[in-house]
Amino acid sequence: MESVVITITSGKGGVGKTTCAANIGSALGMLGKRVVLIDGDIGLRNLDIVMGLENRIVYDAVDFIEGRCRLKQALIRDKRAPELYLMPTAQTRDKSAINADQMVRLCDEMRGDFDYIIIDSPAGIEQGFHTCLAPANRCLVVTNPEVSSVRDADRVIGLIEAAEKGPAQLVINRIVAARVKRQEMLSTDDITEVLSTEIIGVVPEDENILIASNRGHPIVMNGKSPAALAFQDIARRITGEDIPLQPLRASGSILQRLFGRA
C-alpha cells in the first residue's frame, strides 16, 4: 500500500494539533498500521515530549535533509506499537530550515515503507504551514468549539482548498457536553454548519490528556477515557471503517454532570 500523508493543522495555536497527531498516530500504530509521525513545528518541537521519546533524539529531520545522517538514524522507533516511528524536528532552527520541496522529498523517501505519514504542523498560515501542506494527501483541521479557532479553521480550510489538497476534514477538540447542553458552547452541528466541512471526529475535553502529556504516554495508549475512545474512532475512520459519530459522552461524576462542571 502506498503511504497516505496526513497533515494536521489548524491556523490557531494551542487547539490540540500535537495532541491529535500523537494520539491519532499512536492509535493507527496500535491498529497494526505502519506509521511515522513527523514533527513539522521546527524550532518549537513538542511531539517528542508528548510521545515520551525526547530522550532518544540524536538526529532530526533537518539533519537528514542537510545530509548529516541517514534516514534510519533520524527515525525513533516507538516500541509501544508494532510499527510506530517519530521523526523529530530541529529545536534550534527556524521554520525556513525545511522548505516545501524538501518536505515533499522527505515524505517521498518514506512512501512505501509506511501506511500513514502524519505531519504535525506549526500554528499560523505562513511558510511552515505551506511546507507541511505540500506533501499532504489528506488534511485534518483541528478546531475548538470557540469563535476564534473556528474562524481560523475556516481560513485554513480555504487555503487547503486553494492548494488543491481538499476537502479538509475537521477534528473538533475539547468539547464539553454539559456546556453544549447549556447552550454556552458551540455544538458539533453548529460548527459543521458554519464551516460546511465534514467532521472526522469529536474529542471531548478530558483532564486525562494533561496527565498523559505529563507522563509522555499518549492517552490512547492506556485506558478508556472519553478522549482515548474518540481518538481510536478517528483512527478507524481514517482507515476507512464506517464508524458513526458517537453522541457526546459527558465526562466527570454524576454530580459534576448535574451541575455542568465537567
Binding site: E146, G158, E184, M185, D190, V194
Partner: peptide
C-alpha cells in the same frame, strides 16, 4: 441567554466577510 447561538451568528457574519 444562549451564547452558543450568539457565537454562531457572529461567526456566520464574520466568515462571509473573511471569505
Amino acid at each position: 441567554s444562549n451564547t452558543a447561538h450568539t457565537a454562531k451568528q457572529r461567526l456566520r457574519f464574520v466568515l462571509i466577510h473573511d471569505r
